[in-house]
Design a protein around this nucleic acid. Structure first.
Length: 233
DNA sequence: AATCCACGCAACCGCGGGACT
DNA sequence: CAGTCCCGCGGTTGCGTGGAT
């Protein structure tokens, strides 16, 4: 990169007057794909377009690669199961699209975000899962049932239970999920008690931070989140 | 057939935070 | 420790398209 250091705020990532903007052409896609296949990103997106011979901003190249060109990208409509996963995670962690997308192989954060904003939100509104008034936030997606059962994700055809949100992470011992539901995890969770079979007290659950929880095998995490008595700040 | 409008999606923008010097 | 740079993220914008009028 050859930008002059700017002490008055952040320097622009590229010279906007000399980069192409807007939709990518098939030729540009081919150039970017070919360059990354043979050279990789070299850990530097800013200098990549110049090296590859593209008149694009590095951020634009990164976005194009991550969202459309990299191998394994899943195109097409979302499945009911993916709907359930998105709803469940959104209700518990909010608009952390990158985290949600990481639980959906082949999906990108942009994809999930667009899907939520354009279609899934409407679906939830239509089904009464989101209050018709006010903004859609984690705080107003409320579990209407005091004693939710655990929906089976593998055969999910309906929207999941929502999470009751509290100011801080908590888990009253009276509402612990059945250990039979959580004891089959083989996940390794750094910094947390990973022996799920030993989770018999409120204390052992409380030691699990939200980030730890996100590292759990999704099926186990879902079962925990599906218990309407958990909450996160 | 022409115009309007709503929708979906690709892309851009700015910020926060981590890495590096 | 402070300053700088870049990556990654979430919010937002704007264009293309298809349906309605």
């Amino acid at each position: 990169m050859s930008q002059t250091p700017n002490t008055m705020g952040r320097a622009p990532c590229c010279d906007k007057a000399n980069v192409k903007r807007g939709p990518w052409s098939p030729e540009e896609d081919a150039i970017l794909k070919g360059y990354i296949h043979s050279h990789g990103t070299d850990g530097n997106w800013i200098s990549l377009p110049q090296k590859a011979g593209l008149k694009r901003c590095g951020k634009s190249c990164r976005l194009r690669w991550l969202n459309y060109l990299r191998p394994g990208i899943k195109l097409g409509g979302f499945t009911e199961e993916e709907d359930s996963i998105i709803c469940s995670l959104y209700s518990s962690i909010g608009s952390r699209w990158a985290v949600i997308a990481s639980k959906l192989p082949g999906r990108t954060d942009n994809d999930v975000k667009n899907y939520w904003n354009t279609r899934l939100k409407k679906k939830l509104l239509a089904g009464g899962w989101i209050p018709a008034t006010g903004n859609t936030t984690t705080a107003n997606i409320i579990n209407p049932s005091p004693n939710p059962s655990y929906p089976d994700l593998s055969t999910a055809s309906t929207l999941p239970h929502q999470i009751h949100l509290e100011p801080n992470f908590f888990c009253p011992s009276s509402s612990l999920p059945s250990l039979a539901d959580v004891s089959d995890s083989t996940s390794s969770v750094a910094g947390a008690n990973t022996d799920l079979s030993s989770w018999t007290t409120e204390e052992s659950y409380s030691g699990l931070s939200m980030d730890n929880l996100l590292d759990l095998d999704f099926g186990i995490m879902y079962k925990i989140l599906s218990n309407g008595s958990f909450g996160f700040s």
